[in-house]
Structure formats: structure tokens, C-alpha cells
Design a protein around this nucleic acid. Structure first.
Length: 295
DNA sequence: TTCCAGGTGGCAT
DNA sequence: ATGCCACATGGA
């Protein structure tokens, strides 16, 4: 199959490095020319900006499904949300976020597959981002399906809940997940048993909107408050979600004067201060402090 | 070598 | 409801 090039359009408030390397996703890899290659919903792509125009090189014949593909990338990259307005609202309300926005003005919250975020963020606990990327990639190569090749590199989808649910800890051991391996297997079993796969199958260009009606997210094994909020924010389009990890804790202490242990107060504060845009504010703050900048 | 990492489950108060 | 602590592996 040949490559085809899709011109998506010109967008404000979009920076590929900030979006793909801000820690929200683990399967997009920066190429030497500054573009990003990866896979989402089984679609392989190489994404870049050329003369100001967002462009995706992907698989398929020219002219085939062009409008569907464009709609998909618009969806995945969250291009129909007005980040300019969100930044204005957040910036007016909160001076710390206003400062953070100066470092990450081009971040967009990807609309990732729910299942991918469940896997990724169960794996992510007590790991650094490069290590998370390696584990997720290794998982895909070992147990996923080959989705195709781009620039001579093979891309694999993540193993489905069914595949993962059938695996033993011994079989999963080579992936190097450590103590997270049983969490992942148990969560996969919970997803299979809850019946959502029959209702909202993988492969559609959409997230699991009513997962909570099948298994409430916090009931998944290995999913505590932090991972739950990441799944909601990155994988369920619930952008008010405000994950509090070690870095956001630092922000809350340094910039807002909280005591390190006052988690519940931090949550309440975030909900009141950032409201429906909590997750986007969180991502600006996260990106800013990770760059080593202060407030 | 030692220490730590986008936390959570299990147990004790 | 809250406070400890072990947890497996890789990288600095």
C-alpha cells in the first residue's frame, strides 16, 4: 500500500512537540526532521506542519476515504476545540496557569482510545516517561497485531483486552512491567467480563463514553485516583479531570502554597479554580514544571 | 552501589 | 477515613 498525504489545515494553538511530548501519550515518536510518527485507533501516521499547514502522511491510495481520514485526525488531535478561548479564560482566572501557558501554548489534549489510556497509565505508575514508552511499545510488539509499515518501520496495535486477559504473568514477564503486570491482566479481565466490548467495540473512531455503566473506572485493578483521572482526561474526553501526580503536587506546593499531604484540598481547589478546563490547566502546569521552570 | 520513578493495594490504626 | 509500606524493573 502506498502512502497518501492529507492536508488537514492551518491551526492556531497547535505545537506538535508540545502535544506529543508533554507526557499525555506514549506511542508517538519524534523523527529527525521534527515530525512525529505513531499509531492511534489502528491508524498509522507521520504528522508534520508544512508551510503552516498541518499534514498527515498515512497509508492508502490517494482519494480513498480522504474525508473520513481528515475527520479522524481532526477528532484525534482535538482540532475543533477553541484552545485560544480556553487559554484566555484560564489565564484571566489564574496567574500561575497564565505563566505556564507561555511554555506550552501549543498543547492539545489528544482524544486517545480509552483502552490505550487504561493500559498506558496502569503501566505508568512509578515509571519515567521514556520507560513507559518502552514498555507500551514492547507490549504492542509482543502481543499486538501488525497494523502496517511506514518508512520501513512496522507498527503494532496494542493487544486487545481479550488477548491480555488470556495471558499469564509468566507470558507477560518479558515485557518488564514488574508488579504492574498482574494489575494489567486483572483490568483486562474486568473489561472483558463487563461486556462493554460487545457494546462499544474497538476500532471505531470514538472513545468509550459509558464505560462507567459497565465497570466504574476506579474499580479496575491498578487504577487509583491519579490513573483514573488520566484515563478520564486523555481517554474519555472528560477534560475537567485533574490528575494529581508527583509533579502536580510540586506545583500545588510551590505555586499555590498547599501542604504536600492536602490532596483533597488540592482537588477541591482545582475544581473551583479551573472548573470544566481542569485537565487542560493541569497539562499546562505539568509541562511547565517538567521543563524546570518556576512560577 | 544506591536511589528513585506521571501510585496503588493491602493492611493497620 | 487516614497512614504506612511493599511492590518489580530500568535508568541515572
Amino acid at each position: 500500500m502506498k502512502d497518501k498525504v492529507l492536508k488537514i489545515g492551518k491551526f492556531e494553538d497547535l505545537d506538535l512537540e508540545q502535544t506529543f511530548d508533554c507526557g499525555q501519550c506514549f506511542r508517538w515518536i519524534r523523527q529527525e526532521d521534527g515530525s512525529y510518527s505513531g499509531i492511534a485507533y489502528g491508524q498509522i501516521g507521520n504528522i508534520y506542519i508544512e508551510e503552516g499547514c498541518l499534514t498527515v502522511r498515512t497509508k492508502g491510495e490517494i482519494g480513498e476515504n480522504q474525508e473520513v481520514d481528515r475527520a479522524f485526525w481532526r477528532y484525534y488531535l482535538d482540532l475543533d476545540r477553541d484552545y485560544g478561548e480556553i487559554k484566555r479564560v484560564l489565564g484571566e482566572k489564574d496567574a500561575k496557569v497564565a505563566k505556564a501557558i507561555t511554555s506550552g501554548q501549543g498543547i492539545r489534549i489528544l482524544k486517545q482510545e480509552t483502552w490505550e489510556t487504561i493500559v498506558s497509565f496502569i503501566v505508568s505508575q512509578q515509571k519515567q516517561i521514556p520507560s513507559i514508552k518502552k514498555c507500551v511499545e514492547s507490549l504492542a510488539q509482543a502481543f499486538g497485531e501488525k497494523a502496517g509499515t511506514l518508512d520501513g518501520k512496522a507498527y503494532y496495535s496494542l493487544p486487545s483486552p481479550k488477548v491480555l486477559a488470556e495471558l499469564s504473568e509468566a507470558e507477560l514477564a518479558p515485557v518488564g512491567l514488574g508488579y504492574r503486570a498482574p494489575y494489567l491482566i486483572k483490568s483486562a479481565k474486568q473489561i472483558v467480563e463487563c461486556g462493554i466490548l460487545e457494546k462499544e467495540p474497538l476500532g471505531e473512531f470514538r472513545q468509550w463514553k459509558d464505560l462507567d455503566n459497565f465497570v466504574p473506572v476506579p474499580e479496575l485493578t491498578g487504577v487509583g485516583p491519579k490513573v483514573e483521572n488520566c484515563i478520564r482526561l486523555f481517554g474519555m474526553n472528560q477534560i475537567e479531570s485533574f490528575p494529581i501526580d508527583t509533579w502536580i503536587k510540586k506545583v500545588m506546593v510551590q505555586a499555590y502554597g498547599f501542604n504536600e499531604k492536602e490532596l483533597e484540598s488540592m482537588r477541591k481547589f482545582a475544581a473551583r479554580q479551573f472548573g470544566e478546563y481542569g485537565g487542560i490547566a493541569q497539562q499546562y502546569l505539568f509541562y511547565h514544571i517538567k521543563k524546570g521552570l518556576d512560577f
